[in-house]
Computed example of a mutant assay.
Amino acid sequence: MKSSPLNSAEKFDSSRANEYARQSRIALAGYDACQDLAACMLAASLGNAQPANILVVGAGGTAQEIIAMASLEPDWRFTAVDPSAPMLEAAAQQLKANNLLERTSLHLGHVDDLGADQAYDAATLIGVLHHLEGDNAKRQILQSIRAHLKPGAPLIVAGNHYAYASQPLLLAAWGQRWRQHGASADEVKAKLGKILQGADPPHSEAAVQQLLHDAGFGDATRFFSSLFWSAWLTCKGALSRPSTPSEHRA
């Protein structure tokens, strides 16, 4: 969930895992609504009451996406992947509390660690892309997910987009969100500093679409937005030639 596929767990140590459930719900206004809608979008895409195996990438922390999907679709099973041991343990505790451990296979590591013959009916990548440094790392994780999806399978992608400094009003409103929950001016500064540390969001919604196209996914439908955050549904399509940096600038 952080700076590159190989060292992405570094920022998510025990202290951050312990505060993740509360902090994430403040940093993302509508956190639970986003997770609930993601479950609804996948159910609408796959069809109600159909058994399915769902790949959940970056599942550590609250495991809220699994909880939301499981409550809607009792016949779905889940493979939860995360490179941070403390975050995966936090997710396991939430799954245990919701009687979902038997429906979930937990994997400490990365998508590429999964067996090459494992193909899933759908996948989620929530709160991950903006923690991966550079477009190559972002494409790599999307390509890895694509390789483990059945033809036409849906993917939920959610995370921050826009370079933070490019949207000063949104950034200021983000700070006000913390103040709304009782943080002092110094605490707001510290919270924003931690959020911004090492983050590299795609710089626009078009940039997200391009990353998905480059990785072999189709056009994405946005279904949720909150300040810097948005969530989209796309589907596995045919691989196309990745565009060059000059084409991105055009």
Rank of each mutant, 00 (worst) to 15 (best):
Q176L: 15
D219F: 08
A163D: 15
Q209R: 05
A231Y: 00
D200W: 00
K150E: 11
A52Q: 03
Y31M: 03
Y162W: 13
A116N: 13
P5Y: 02
A137K: 01
F12A: 09
F223N: 00
K138N: 06
F224D: 02
I195K: 09
D121L: 08
C34Y: 10
L171S: 08
K96P: 06
A52K: 02
Q210N: 10
R222D: 00
S24P: 11
S230D: 10
S71R: 09
A172H: 13
L114F: 08
R146E: 14
A52F: 08
C34S: 14
G198N: 00
A206D: 14
Q140S: 15
M87L: 00
A44N: 13
A215E: 03
A17K: 02
F12T: 05
E187Y: 04
S3G: 10
K96A: 15
R249F: 06
I126G: 03
D219M: 09
T62W: 08
S8Q: 14
I54S: 01
A43V: 12
D117E: 14
K150Y: 07
A158Y: 01
D219Q: 13
Y164A: 14
R77Q: 15
L155W: 00
Y120W: 04
I54N: 00
P242A: 08
C235W: 05
S144R: 10
R139C: 07
A119W: 13
L233D: 02
I66A: 01
N18C: 12
D36H: 09
S184E: 06
L239I: 12
S225H: 12
L37W: 03
T244M: 07
P201W: 02
M87F: 02
F78H: 00
E187H: 07
W232Y: 07
S24Q: 15
L171A: 10
S243T: 15
L132G: 02
L211P: 01
P201Y: 03
S246W: 14
R249K: 08
A21Y: 09
I26C: 12
A80M: 04
L106W: 00
H131E: 13
A90I: 12
G237C: 03
P154E: 05
S45R: 11
A183S: 12
G218H: 02
V157H: 08
K2E: 13
D82Q: 03
P83I: 15
L155A: 00
T221R: 11
G198L: 01
G198D: 04
G134K: 01
L101Y: 02
Y162H: 15
P201C: 08
G61S: 03
S8T: 15
L155V: 04
W178K: 04
P154W: 10
D219R: 10
L211W: 11
P83F: 08
S8L: 12
D112W: 11
A173N: 13
V157C: 10
A44C: 11
R241M: 07
V81N: 07
L129I: 14
A17H: 04
P86A: 03
G58R: 04
K96T: 12
L142Q: 01
A163Y: 12
A91V: 06
D113K: 02
K189Y: 10
L6H: 13
A250H: 11
L100I: 06
D214L: 03
A59F: 04
G58H: 05
L125E: 04
A183R: 14
P74R: 15
A183H: 14
G127C: 03
A147E: 12
A153V: 09
L171R: 07
